[in-house]
Amino acid sequence: GKMTGIVKWFNADKGFGFITPDDGSKDVFVHFSAIQNDGYKSSDEGQKVSFTIESGAKGPAAGNVTSL
């Protein structure tokens, strides 16, 4: 299901970062391709987002990331 969290950091040059879930669980990796914004796929530190957890090649990753 959908979770909410805060972007801990995001490196636009490398195209990835981490989200800290609101439920206190482990930080989740986020790749720019998962960000659902139109246009520039980046996110700012401290941005509140909703997301799903997908199982990626390197473990859990955020999917369907949407700014709230």
Rank of each mutant, 00 (worst) to 15 (best):
A57D: 10
A61W: 15
V65H: 01
K14N: 06
N11H: 06
P60W: 08
A12R: 13
D13T: 13
N11S: 10
G59V: 02
A12N: 10
G63P: 01
Y40P: 10
H31A: 04
N64G: 07
T20C: 12
N64D: 07
V65M: 03
G39Y: 11
D23M: 04
G5N: 01
T4R: 06
F16C: 04
T4G: 02
K8I: 07
S25M: 04
D44I: 15
S55D: 12
G17E: 01
A62L: 00
K48E: 07
S33H: 06
A34P: 05
K41E: 09
V30S: 00
K8P: 02
G24H: 06
F18D: 01
G1S: 11
G59A: 04
T4L: 08
K41Y: 12
Q47K: 10
L68R: 06
E54D: 08
F32W: 15
G15F: 03
F16S: 01
F18H: 00
G63R: 15
G39V: 10
F10C: 06
G5C: 06
K41N: 11
D23Q: 04
E54H: 13
S42D: 08
L68H: 07
V30P: 04
F10D: 02
L68V: 10
S33A: 07
S33R: 06
T52E: 07
P60I: 12
A12P: 12
E54A: 08
G17L: 05
I6L: 07
F29A: 00
P21V: 04
F18S: 01
I53A: 03
G59S: 05
G5F: 04
K14W: 12
F16E: 02
Q36K: 10
G39D: 11
G1K: 14
L68S: 07
A62V: 03
S55N: 14
F29H: 01
S25Q: 06
V65L: 04
I35P: 02
N64E: 07
N11C: 11
K8F: 06
N11D: 13
I19K: 00
E54S: 10
F29M: 01
S43L: 15
S33I: 06
S67H: 14
G15H: 04
G5A: 02
W9S: 02
D44A: 15
D23V: 05
M3T: 06
M3G: 03
G24L: 04
A61T: 14
G63Y: 12
S67N: 13
N37H: 12
V28A: 00
S25L: 04
G24W: 05
T4A: 04
N37F: 14
F51T: 01
V28I: 12
G63Q: 14
G39N: 10
K48W: 13
F32A: 13
A34M: 06
L68E: 07
K48M: 08
Q36L: 13
K26G: 12
K14H: 07
T4C: 12
V65S: 03
S25W: 04
W9L: 00
D44V: 15
V49L: 03
G5M: 04
S50Y: 08
D23W: 05
Q47E: 11
K14R: 10
D22Q: 03
D22Y: 05
V30I: 09
S67W: 14
N11T: 03
S25D: 07
D13M: 12
A62Y: 02
G56M: 08
V49N: 02
S55C: 14
G1N: 12
I6G: 02
D27C: 08
S67R: 14
V7Q: 01
V7D: 03
M3L: 11
D27S: 05
S33V: 06
V30Y: 15
A61Q: 15
I35L: 13
F32L: 12
K8E: 02
G46A: 07
K58H: 12
G24F: 03
I53D: 02
D38Q: 11
G56L: 07
P60A: 09
K8T: 05
F29P: 00
T52W: 08
T4S: 07
G59M: 04
S33Q: 06
T4E: 03
N11K: 04
K2D: 04
E45H: 14
N37Q: 12
P60E: 07
A61E: 15
S43H: 13
G17T: 01
G46N: 09
S42T: 14
S25T: 10
D22M: 07
N37K: 12
W9V: 02
G1T: 13
T4D: 01
D13P: 04
I53N: 03
N11F: 05
V30M: 13
G46R: 08
V30F: 15
A34K: 08
D44P: 15
A62Q: 02
S55K: 13
G59Y: 07
K58P: 07
P60K: 09
D27M: 05
F51M: 02
D13K: 14
S43I: 15
K58F: 14
I6T: 13
G63S: 13
A34Y: 05
I6Q: 07
S42L: 14
A57R: 13
K58Y: 14
A57H: 11
V65R: 00
V30N: 01
K41M: 12
T4Q: 05
G59N: 05
D27I: 05
S25C: 06
N11L: 04
T52S: 08
G63V: 14
D13A: 14
S25H: 06
A12M: 11
V65A: 02
F29W: 07
K48D: 03
F16R: 00
K8L: 06
V7G: 01
D44S: 15
V28T: 01
P60H: 07
K26Q: 12
A57W: 13
D38C: 14
D13R: 12
T20E: 06
K26C: 11
S42P: 11
K2C: 13
I19T: 00
I35W: 15
G56Q: 10
K14C: 10
L68P: 04
V28R: 00
G15R: 04
W9R: 01
G17H: 00
G56H: 11
I53K: 05
G63K: 15
S42G: 11
N64A: 07
V49F: 03
G46I: 09
T52L: 07
P21K: 00
F51H: 01
A61P: 02
G1H: 12
E54Q: 11
I35A: 03
A57Q: 11
Q47N: 10
Y40T: 10
Y40C: 14
Q36T: 11
K14M: 12
S25Y: 04
K48H: 14
F10G: 02
S67T: 12
K14D: 05
A61K: 15
A57T: 12
Q47C: 14
K8V: 07
T52C: 09
D27Y: 02
G39S: 11
G5Y: 00
K48P: 09
K2M: 11
H31V: 04
G17Y: 07
M3S: 06
G5E: 01
G63D: 06
H31D: 06
P60Q: 09
W9G: 02
S50C: 12
S33W: 06
N64T: 06
D23F: 06
E45F: 14
N64W: 09
F16L: 03
Y40E: 08
W9D: 03
D23Y: 05
K26F: 08
K58D: 07
A12I: 12
K8W: 04
G17S: 00
F18T: 01
E54Y: 13
N11P: 03
I53P: 03
I19S: 00
T20H: 07
G1E: 11
I19Q: 00
F32S: 11
S25F: 04
K26D: 11
A62G: 02
A34I: 04
W9F: 08
S67Q: 11
H31F: 08
I53V: 10
G15C: 09
K48S: 06
A61R: 15
G56T: 15
G46M: 09
V49R: 00
S50M: 10
V7A: 00
D27F: 02
N37E: 11
V30D: 03
F16K: 00
F18L: 05
K58R: 13
W9K: 01
I35C: 13
S25N: 06
K2S: 08
S43F: 15
E54M: 12
G24A: 04
L68F: 08
H31N: 04
P21M: 05
I19Y: 00
F29K: 02
L68Q: 07
D22T: 07
K58I: 08
M3K: 11
G59T: 03
F29S: 01
D27G: 03
P60M: 10
N64Q: 09
H31S: 06
K8H: 09
L68C: 09
F10H: 01
I53M: 09
D22I: 06
T66M: 10
W9P: 00
F29D: 03
T20W: 05
G59P: 05
G63T: 14
D13H: 12
K2P: 09
K41A: 11
M3Q: 09
A57E: 11
N64Y: 08
V7T: 01
E45L: 14
K2Q: 09
D13F: 11
I6K: 11
D22N: 05
G17A: 04
N64C: 10
D27N: 06
G59C: 07
M3R: 10
G24N: 06
K41G: 12
K26M: 10
E45K: 15
K41C: 14
G5V: 05
H31M: 04
G39R: 09
H31E: 05
K48V: 08
S67C: 13
F10T: 01
Q36M: 14
G1D: 10
T52H: 07
S43Q: 10
T66L: 09
S55W: 15
P21T: 05
F29E: 02
N64R: 07
G46C: 14
L68M: 10
A57N: 10
V30H: 03
A12S: 11
K48T: 06
F16D: 01
K26T: 09
G17F: 06
S42I: 14
T66G: 05
Q36W: 10
F10I: 03
G56Y: 08
